[in-house]
């Protein structure tokens, strides 16, 4: 097993192929940008998370991102913070993330990634966590506070198990760091649209496209944009230049206010924006 950074999001021979890459490529082959939906696990309970995840998959989402509620979520805005505080208050424990992943992957074809701050993974042990995630059918991890510089063990374990490594790049990312992060990623690269935390915004601005362009120029085959995306119009705007669009806060608010049905409705609405060629396409 090599310990150096693998090349350009390509799986090494022997390891399973990237599930996230496959989901994005399938959308691409259908003339769409991939639609990625986020929900925190255990909000308001594990069963609802599974049902909402399945509802997203059945209504046009290509990849599902499930967050682990964490005590100190520095990259999250108020809506997601409140949801994760409630999940923890309702008794969510970290090992339940595998129940959620398995519950969704058993019923749908969507790729399921786990979004997690790093300490819960470190506490369980990177290898233990990764093996359980793989066994549950998970695609990989999105890591908002883990940069490739600190990720040696995760790089190695994820390579062995064929799990996706989704690192973040931002408008502030230097060209050299962009190259390093693109090289270290597997599945896709997560482009942070604005300098800030999660939360719906009326506009994600021009910075997002510049980040996506820089990641593509550094060799990234798949770049998805997250932070601030809440409407089908924004999905359409971003889908014109990015390979996928990530929606979080708006879906969490929908689940909070209208339950699983509201998540299904919003997902269907958002998916109308993902078509690159003709309007109305959905999975």
């Amino acid at each position: 097993m090599t310990t150096h950074l693998p090349d350009r999001q390509q799986p090494e021979s022997g390891a399973p192929a990237s599930k996230a890459a496959a989901a994005i490529e399938k959308a691409r082959s259908e003339g769409r940008a991939a639609l990625i939906g986020y929900l925190p696990a255990g909000f308001p309970d594990v069963r609802t998370t599974i049902e909402a995840g399945i509802a997203m998959a059945e209504n046009g989402v290509d990849l599902i991102e499930i967050g682990i509620p964490y005590s100190d979520p520095v990259m999250d805005g108020v809506v997601i913070q409140e949801a994760t505080v409630e999940a923890l208050a309702n008794g969510f424990t970290v090992p339940q993330i595998f129940d959620v992943v398995e519950g969704i992957t058993r019923k749908t074809d969507a790729a399921v990634l786990v979004m997690t701050y790093w300490n819960p993974v470190m506490r369980m042990g990177v290898r233990d966590f990764a093996e359980r995630l793989a066994a549950a059918g998970g695609a990989g991890l999105i890591t908002p506070d883990l940069i490739p510089d600190e990720a040696a063990e995760w790089l190695q374990v994820s390579e062995e198990l064929g799990l996706d490594r989704v690192f973040l790049v931002a408008p502030s990312t230097s060209p050299q760091r962009m190259q390093n992060t693109v090289d270290a990623s597997r599945g896709f690269v997560y482009a942070v649209s604005v300098m800030g935390v999660t939360g719906a915004r009326t506009s994600v601005g021009a910075a997002a496209q510049a980040v996506v362009d820089a990641a593509h120029d550094a060799g990234a085959e798949r770049v998805c944009v997250g932070l601030g995306v809440s409407s089908s119009a924004q999905v359409r705007e971003i889908g014109a230049y990015a390979d996928g669009v990530i929606v979080g806060t708006a879906l969490v608010a929908a689940l909070r206010d209208g339950g699983v049905q509201a998540v299904a409705d919003l997902t269907r609405e958002l998916s109308t924006g993902a078509a690159k060629v003709s309007a109305g396409g959905s999975a």
Binding site: M75, L146, I147, E150, S172, T173, R177
Partner: peptide, 14 residues
């Protein structure tokens, strides 16, 4: 030690 931080802040730390 190290830098267990969001990428958005790495440029500022640099």
């Amino acid at each position: 030690g190290g830098r267990w931080m969001p990428e958005s802040l790495i440029a500022a730390l640099d």
